[in-house]
């Protein structure tokens, strides 16, 4: 147990900075991912997500600061032995079959022949490509290519998997499969670093999230912490008038009125029964009262200005 306490984080990034000529891709980004976590790295396109991952897998070198994988620099082959990586522009040798490509990657990862023979069909099955390994990658659809890329990333049972937009080419069914795959990896104790601009995807699987915008880390934390303690109540009324809004204002802050639906921001969900009693006691008819957590999207949009910029 003492060993585990001293185990280095899966990813540790300190004051990471990357410039390309004059343009700054990353300003002073710091984050830590503990072993076994599913970590979501969120941000609009061009925010610096891919640059960060490329530094973490040794494809690019930082201009300043530190990046470590299990306590070692990514340039260390020993560090890279423990990672699996799906690049953003998942492209593989088109002349090869899926099986051959996986075999090549298995060799590079140091797997022996017996391991490769056993493991390749397993991962093909896991990503939904069972029986398709013999086809040339040239003939794969975009979605299939992304799937074979995922297979390549988890092939050698890495301790840390970095996925850069792993569902960009997948349909909703495929996205769900990837979510299940990520959860299965986490169940096996694998750390997952998920780069994405798809909020629902991150919300559905990640334990913790960091949001980057224009090369800066704007927020990091557990999903529940990110949203803050605030809770909202969504009320469906028979009618909305000034008197109603005045009564609601005693319990919290009216955030939105849409037809006969009112969203009320409150300090705690505990006030819900009191709110209901007040309204019914005043002669209003209440059709629904639901407590809602602000979604990650609300948080995200609030933090990241200008959307796609």
């Amino acid at each position: 147990m003492a060993d585990r306490a001293e185990a280095p984080p899966a990813i540790e990034v300190r004051s990471l900075r990357k410039t390309y000529g004059r343009s700054v891709a990353l300003h002073d980004v710091s984050l830590t991912v503990e072993p076994g976590e599913i970590f979501g790295f969120l941000g609009p396109n061009g925010a610096g997500k891919t640059t960060t991952v490329k530094i973490l897998v040794g494809l690019a070198r930082q201009t300043g600061g530190q990046a470590q994988i299990f306590g070692r620099a990514p340039s260390h082959l020993a560090a890279r032995r423990r990672i699996g990586y799906l690049p953003e522009h998942f492209r593989f040798q088109e002349w090869a079959t899926g099986y051959e490509m996986l075999d090549f990657h298995g060799r590079l990862a140091g797997m022996d022949a017996a391991e490769r023979r056993e493991r390749i069909p397993q991962v093909l099955e896991q990503v939904g490509l069972a029986g398709r390994g013999g086809e040339a990658i040239r003939r794969y659809s975009k979605g299939m290519t992304q799937r074979i890329g995922l297979a390549q990333a988890i092939l050698h049972r890495p301790d840390l998997v970095l996925l850069d937009e792993p569902t960009s080419a997948l349909d909703p069914v495929g996205r769900r499969e990837v979510r299940l795959l990520v959860r299965a990896l986490a169940d096996d104790g694998v750390t997952v670093f998920l780069n994405s601009h798809l909020l629902t995807e991150v919300e559905a699987v990640c334990d913790r999230v960091a949001i980057v915008d224009r090369g800066r880390l704007v927020r990091a934390g557990r999903l529940s912490d990110l949203a803050g303690a605030a809770v909202q109540l969504r009320l469906l009324m028979d009618r909305v008038d000034r008197e109603l809004l005045a009564k609601l204002a005693q319990h919290g802050e009216v955030a939105e009125v849409e037809g006969t639906a009112v969203t009320l921001t409150v300090d705690s969900v505990d006030v819900a029964p009191t709110v209901a009693e007040t309204l019914i006691g005043s002669g209003y008819r209440l059709y629904g009262l639901v407590p809602v957590q602000p979604s990650l999207e609300d948080v995200f949009v609030g933090l990241v200005e200008g959307g796609d910029g």
């Binding site: 020993a78 990672i83 990586y85 690049p87 593989f92 590079l108 890329g149 390549q152």
Partner: peptide, 9 residues
């Protein structure tokens, strides 16, 4: 990209 992220100098 995927190839050079391997433990390959």
């Amino acid at each position: 990209h995927a190839v050079l992220a391997r433990p390959l100098g």
